[in-house]
Amino acid sequence: MSASGFDVQTVAFLARLKLSLEEEDRLGRQFEQILAHIDKLNTLDTSNVEPTSHAIPLQNVFREDKAETRFPDEDYLSLSPAQYKDHYEVPQIIG
């Protein structure tokens, strides 16, 4: 873990990425730079700014509860690497 608290190995594990030592080093440093850059935002005085959770001033965007098949002829299953009996086949999850 670096001085800023950023741990490249943990983040790589959470993203299921396997990094070489060279990549760990390089990406770690790049992330540090990015974080340092973002940290500049923290120097702004936001005490008079309402917290916001969304970039666009929108609220209550809804659709009506109506069931319909959007693309009836689309065979999504065939886009996957492996299928079996109308199911998506994936590596074993639990033993």
Binding site: Y84, D86, H87, Y88, E89, V90, P91, Q92, I93, I94
Partner: peptide
């Protein structure tokens, strides 16, 4: 919903219904 191994197909695989 996941179905595991030979409950549907082969051992060593899982199967997903979305």
């Amino acid at each position: 919903k996941s179905i595991h191994g030979d409950n549907l197909g082969k051992p060593g695989k899982s199967y997903v219904d979305f």
